[in-house]
Design a protein around this nucleic acid. Structure first.
Lengths: 196, 196, 196, 196
DNA sequence: AATGAATGAGGCTTCATTCAT
DNA sequence: CATGAATGAAGCCTCATTCAT
C-alpha cells in the first residue's frame, strides 16, 4: 500500500519534471519550480530522487518504459506489417497530442548526440524498442518489404513522423502538412521506400 | 585594418566556442575554457561579445552564414538537379570530417526542439537556406522530380544524411552503414522518393 | 508507572544519542539515525526532547549525573586518599571499556574548548564533581599530600589518565603505554606530584 | 610577484578562517561570514581554496607549520634542556596572547579524538613537532632528566600548560593560577616529574 | 587593447522539525 | 502514543560578468 503510494508519487513528480525538462532542458530546469508545479515542497523531491540528475534519468527511463509498452502492444498484434506500421504512426501522432513533453524529451535523445549524460542516457535508450525497425525487418523477412537497410529505414520513417509534428520543430521551420494529410503522406513514403 | 583584425579575432573565438558549445551544450560550456582554448584572457571575450548568450547566438549565426555560402555555391552551379543534390550530400559528409562542431550545433537546432533561446535561434535559422529543399523544388518545377511535398522531402533527405553520421548520433544508436555505401544509399533513396 | 516508562525511554534514547554524538560530533549527528539505532520513529524523539540541542544537552547532563554518582560512591568510601585516588583511576579505565561514548563526550567538554553551546554546557558542567580534585584537597588537608594547587593537580592527573586512553586520542598520537603499566605509571606520577 | 601576493592572500584568509573555525567549529563556521570578515567576496575564497574542508585543512596545516617553526627555533638553540623547556613554555603563553585562535584549533586536535576529518587531520598532525617531548628525550639521553616515559611526560606537561590558559578552558572550569605564578608552578612540576 | 582577480546571484541539497494519521 | 512523509531554511559552491590595472 505504502509502496504503491510511493510509486504513484514518483510518477506524479516525473510527470511534472518531464514538462520542465522538456521546456527548459536539463540545466535550465529548476528543482524548486518542479516542486511548486507539483504542489509539493522542494525537499519532498529528494525523498524520491537522490539528485536532479537522478530525476532526469528516471524521467527518461519512464519515457522509455512507456514507449516500450506501446510498442509491445502493437508489435504483438496479429496484423500484417504494413498495418502495423500504420498503427505505430497513428500512435505517435496520438502521443503528440497527449504527451508532448515525453515526446520532446524522447526526440532530444532519439536523434543526435546530446550533451547531457550521454553514457547514462545511452544505457537507458539501449532498452528502447524501435517498433518501426522491428516491423520493417519482419516485413523484409516475410518478403513483403524490400530495402537494403531495414533498420536505417525504420529510423528514417521515424524522423519523418517527427518532422511532421509542428510542436517538436522550431516555429515555421518545416512547412505545414495538413493534419489529415500527414499519415497518408507518410504511408505513401513508406511504400516508396519499401516496395519490392 | 583594425576592424579586419577585430573580425578575425571574433572568428577565432567563435571557432573555439563552437567546439565548446558542441561538446558540452550551452549551459555546460565554460567561458573561461573557451578563453584558454582560444589562447586569450577571459575578459577579452567580453570585448567582442556582450554576453555568453551573445557569443552563442553569434556562433549559430556564423554557422548559418557558412552553410549558406556553401549552399549558394552549389545551387548556383550549372548542373541538373540530381547532380546538385549529389553535390550537397557530398558536401555534408565533407563537413562531417572538417567541421563536426558546426555540424553538431546546426543539427541540434535543425532537428531537435532545443530549449536554448528558441526564439532568437529561430530568428537566425530563418535565414538558413535549405539547398536540398531548393533543389528539389527546382527539380519539381522542371519536371524532373515528382513529390507532393518538395520541402518536406528536402528536410527528410537531410535527416537521412544526418542519421548516417555516427558522430552526430548517440553511441551505437544507429547501425553502421559503410562509409562508401552511404552516398549511394542516399541517392537511391532520393530516387525512390522523387521518381515520377 | 507511565512516568517511569517515560524516563526509561529517555534514557534509551540518550544512550543511543551519546554514541552518535560521540562518533560524529553535534553537527554531524543525525536525528534520523539516532531514531533508527534506537528502534523508534524519528518523530518519537521529539516527544521526549524538544530539539536536537535539547537532546544534546540532556545527554551531557546524563553523563554528568552518571559521573557524579560514581564520584560520590568513591569519595564517600572509608579509604585513605591515596587508595581513593587509585579507585578513581581504575574506575576511569573501566569507563573506557564500558562507556566509551560517554567518555568521549565528557572529555570533549572537559578538556577542549568545544564550540557547541559553550554557555549551556558550562552550566551543566558546573555540577560535575571532580573526585580527583576533591580527594587531593582532602589529602592536603589531612597532611598526606602536599601541593600548592590541589585542584589544578587534580585536573592534571585527570588529563594524564585521558592521555593514556588510545580510544580518546588521535590515532597514533600518543605513544602506547602497556595497559598493565598505565595505572602504576599514573600512581607513580601522583606520588611525585603530591609527595611532601 | 603574483605568486607572492597569492600567498599573502591565502594567509590573510587563513587568519580570518582560523578565528571563525576556532570560535564556531568546522560545521558552525560560515564561508560567507569568513569572506565578510576578510573583507572579500564569498567567491574569492574559492579562488584560493577548493572547498570549505580544504580551507579548514590548510588552516590546520598553517598552524602546524607555525608551531613547527617556533619549535625548531627553540630546540636548535644552544641551551640546556631545562632552559629549553622553560623557553617552550614561555612561548606557549606568548601564543596564548597573540594567536588564541591558532591555539584553540591546535588544542582541539592535539588533545583527544575529534570528529572532523580525523584521518586528514591526523596526517597533518603527523608533521607537528612536539618540542617538549623532544627536549625531554634529549634531557633523558644526556642524563639530566629521568622518567620511564619521556614522550608521555612531554604531552603531559603540554596538557598542564593548556590547562592554565583560561581562554582555552570552559569558563570557571579550572581555578585561576595567577599569571605570574603559572610558569614557576609548571617548572616546579617539571622538576618533580623529571628529577633523578 | 587585454587581462584575470574579484564578485555574488542562483541553484542544488541536507536535515531538523512538524503534523496529519 | 507513535510515526514518517513533508517541509523549507540555510549553506556550499559555480561561473558569468565586471573592472582596475
Amino acid at each position: 500500500m505504502k509502496i504503491i503510494n510511493q510509486k504513484r508519487k514518483k510518477e506524479e513528480i516525473i510527470e511534472v519534471a518531464a514538462r520542465e525538462f522538456a521546456e527548459k532542458g536539463y540545466d535550465g530546469a529548476n528543482i524548486n519550480e518542479i516542486a511548486i508545479m507539483a504542489g509539493i515542497g522542494k525537499g519532498t523531491i529528494y525523498l524520491y530522487f537522490k539528485t536532479k540528475k537522478d530525476l532526469y534519468l528516471e524521467t527518461i527511463r519512464a519515457i522509455v518504459d512507456r514507449f516500450n509498452e506501446m510498442s509491445e502492444q502493437i508489435v504483438s498484434m496479429d496484423l500484417n506489417p504494413f498495418e502495423k506500421l500504420k498503427l505505430v504512426i497513428e500512435t505517435f501522432f496520438q502521443l503528440e497530442r497527449e504527451s508532448i513533453s515525453y515526446l520532446k524529451l524522447w526526440s532530444r535523445h532519439q536523434f543526435q548526440h546530446n550533451p547531457v549524460f550521454p553514457e547514462e542516457v545511452s544505457k537507458i535508450f539501449k532498452d528502447l524498442r524501435q517498433p518501426l525497425c522491428e516491423i520493417i525487418e519482419e516485413g523484409v523477412e516475410k518478403g513483403e518489404f524490400s530495402t537494403p537497410y531495414p533498420t536505417v529505414t525504420g529510423y528514417f520513417i521515424l524522423s519523418l513522423i517527427v518532422m511532421l509534428m509542428p510542436n517538436l520543430q522550431r516555429p515555421n521551420s518545416v512547412p505545414l502538412v495538413q493534419e489529415e494529410e500527414r499519415i497518408p503522406f507518410i504511408l505513401d513514403t513508406v511504400r516508396k521506400l519499401l516496395q519490392k
